[in-house]
Amino acid sequence: MRLRLTVLSVVLLLGVVGGGCSERPPTSPTLPSAPPSPSKTPAPHPTDRQVAIRDQHLLNIKLTTHEGRAVRFYDDLVKGKVVAINFMFTTCGNSCPLSTVHLAEAQKLLGERAGRDVTFLSITLDPEHDTPRVLQAYAKAYGVGPGWYFLTGNKDDIERLRRKLGVYDLDPIVDADRNQHSGIVVLGNEPRRRWKAVSTLSKPVRIRQAIERTILPPNKWPRGAAVVNEAPYEVRDVVEPVDLSALPPRD
């Protein structure tokens, strides 16, 4: 409970700062001819950074939840929240099932934080097939908990959002393969302006830890007994026969 209050107070504090400064006139996109004097040290404005991230990455596209509710990505799902966002599609037989299993496991490990302190957002890359009803059945099959929305929408909108969230491959052939995009979960704390990504194929305990660290400021991270013990120590020592013939001749 104490932790929850802390999170809330951080959000409130930032909200107050942000609100107070939103009345500031927008900075001109062109620089003034005289460079700013280094003697004055204006702080980069938290709101500036928040707005820049929103404008660059958090498209406010229309989506529909697996419960059939019409939502806006930024306004309704991300603004003021901690989110874990991944892309998937229900007919994906590649890494999607494992990703969903790992995320569901991480959600369980988060306990009461899930749905309260963090929202899971799984966005389909196959919106034509993955209607809200299909997504609802998928969510049910994986036993997902509260605060997890499966989302469908306009295909082009979703593709733009995927790229803006950094879930893409520089190789267009790889990028065209939908199977390649379910391996990343983007974690964000919108009011704190902290964003990162971890692999959904890493252990669920890792995903849970990364999410907790996204929720809380560093000085509030759990210590000692709250830190999960890892799996037993594993040794791999794979060697192969030495092949000197593969080496170029030397002087």
Binding site: A231, P232, Y233, E234, V235, R236
Partner: peptide
């Protein structure tokens, strides 16, 4: 993974 060693 700090609990896995890949070469000895």
């Amino acid at each position: 993974d700090e609990n896995r060693v890949d070469a000895r």
